[in-house]
Amino acid sequence: METGTSRVKRGMAEMQKGGVIMDVMNAEQAKVAEAAGATAVMALERVPSDIRAAGGVARMADPTIVEEVMKVVSIPVMAKARIGHYVEAKVLESLGVDYIDESEVLTPADDVFHISKEEFTVPFVCGAKDLGEALRRIQEGASMLRTKGEPGTGNIVEAVRHMRLITGQIRKVQNLSKDELYHEAKTLGVPYDLLLGVHESGRLPVVNFAAGGVATPSDAALMMHLGADGVFVGSGIFKSDSPEKFARAIVEATTHYTDYELIARVSKNLGAPMKGIEISKLDRSERMQDRGL
């Protein structure tokens, strides 16, 4: 009997495929998310748009919130640790969370190194905006990836850019010759073996979700259309006018992302989605996607 094997950790993410993982800030929201059909919840003290608004240093949530959420739902519970914050991750593991997001949404604790995730029994998800970041996180032991997008903006453009970039880079790598692959590994700053795997399989070795800017059912379906395995929705649900309706509609649109009549139907009378931010209005220093490369 072996726990924490790569198959067990990556397999857990495989079971989330085609699903929606929702940010929640308390037990009540967690129940709303579960009832709407979320495949997991991310327990947080503040959703990204509030983190953005509040400024200052964003840290791991109070364990009380995480435990409270774990108590009321039967679906997996994820929680965020700061990039490079080994101890926050160990604390979350000790609480028994099912997945840790080493997340750029929180203020990084280490501006060079990520957590060595291999040695944990609990699996990790990390953000990536290009193939180099994606494979570096996998090398460190991430069992699941997500696009970084630009969290808390309600603007899908960055998630789209990151998903397109990664799939485009994968297509390019597939067509490289062996000598070109050595050079590409050096250029991307990734281990050759992982790049060779991508060259041969034409895909990442772990599940890759969309995250960072999903605000509507159509946004979720668009990311599935672009090749995402599933969707994280952060501020998009509980910052909308009617969280329950948005949550249910986003779940259905993710499952049936090619059924446009269905998406039209579930998009009716939802009320206002979260208020978004135009990316060009965002100061460079406020961009979360530039954290943890």
């Binding site: 009997m1 726990t3 067990v8 397999g11 039967s74 969370v97």
Partner: peptide
Amino acid sequence: ARNAFGRQRESFET
């Protein structure tokens, strides 16, 4: 019984 072995950290192969 759902989640009968515990949480993710108790997941295993055999």
